[in-house]
Amino acid sequence: MSEGDPVPSERDLALRFEVARETVRQALRELLVEGRIRRQGRGTVVSRPKMVQPLSLRSYTEGAISHGRVPGRLVVNWEDVPADADVADALGLTLGAAVMHLERVLLADGERIGLESTFLPLARFRDLYDTYDPTTSLYAAVRAAGVEMGKATERIETVLASPREAALLECTTALPLLLLHRRSVDGKGEPIERVRSLYRGDRIAFEAQLSR
């Protein structure tokens, strides 16, 4: 079957393969979680392959374009907030110091695949409010401001979405999500960002190149 083809009904599949309806239902649930099929209206269709992103300092925009996908972003929040203990520690700030918080839904060909929450030191990046379009690549704007990414530490976990996150990602709270925490610094070791990203496990995967 090709991308976009309708998936036969549970009844038809059960008759075709001579198995119980519950067996078919479980198989379809597994295919849904794997991203092989997706809901569309009242039916189910074959999904396109997952977008595979490298674990690197390359931006989301660059990764999406390299896979022939059209990147996009929907801005949820862009405001100054006081740094909590985790953000303050990551950015080398005092507790409660003002930081820039940018929260966006990440799109690929118009589909919602991720929810990204980025914290930046306000004193260092205040000018972004005047120069940056938050629907475009943040890393490109940071480079344009004369700041180059040096290295980053990233941790990956699996979680379930909260009701708010599920609504923003247009999924159910039962869908497994990939949670990424990233802390990036420049070449001198000065903190640039603290990022919390949620990705739909049925639409994206990550890979890393390893060597001895």
Rank of each mutant, 00 (worst) to 15 (best):
Y132N: 01
T136Y: 07
A144H: 08
V87F: 04
D127C: 03
A85S: 14
V87L: 02
L128K: 05
R126Y: 13
L128R: 04
R104V: 09
V105Q: 05
T135P: 03
A140P: 08
L115K: 06
S117F: 08
T118W: 00
T118C: 00
V142P: 04
Y132W: 15
G110K: 10
R104D: 00
T118Q: 00
L107R: 02
P134Q: 04
L102Q: 05
Y132I: 01
L106H: 04
A123G: 05
A90L: 11
D89H: 10
G96P: 12
M100R: 14
R143K: 07
R112F: 08
P134K: 03
R126G: 03
A144Y: 05
T94V: 13
V142I: 15
L106D: 00
A90G: 07
A88H: 10
L128F: 12
E103T: 14
D133T: 10
R112L: 06
E116H: 12
I113K: 01
S137T: 10
S117M: 14
R143S: 03
T118H: 03
D130F: 11
H101D: 06
M149F: 15
A85R: 15
L102A: 02
F119V: 03
D133Y: 13
D130T: 11
D86S: 01
D133L: 11
E111G: 00
T135H: 05
V99E: 01
E111N: 03
V105T: 12
A98S: 14
V147G: 01
L120A: 05
Y132M: 01
D133I: 13
A144M: 06
F119H: 14
T131W: 11
M100P: 04
E103A: 05
R143D: 04
V87M: 03
R126W: 14
T94G: 15
L95E: 14
A98W: 10
L95T: 08
L138W: 12
G96K: 13
L138Y: 10
T135F: 07
V99F: 04
V87I: 12
D89T: 11
L95Q: 13
A88S: 10
E116F: 06
E116R: 12
L128N: 02
D130I: 07
Y132K: 01
L128C: 06
M149H: 10
E116V: 11
A98P: 08
A108P: 04
V105E: 06
L93D: 01
R126D: 12
R126A: 10
G146Y: 09
F125A: 00
E111C: 00
A141Q: 09
D127P: 06
L95K: 12
E111M: 05
D133M: 11
S117I: 12
A97W: 09
A85I: 13
M100A: 09
G92N: 13
G96T: 13
T136P: 06
T118L: 02
M149L: 15
H101W: 10
V99K: 03
E148L: 13
D89V: 08
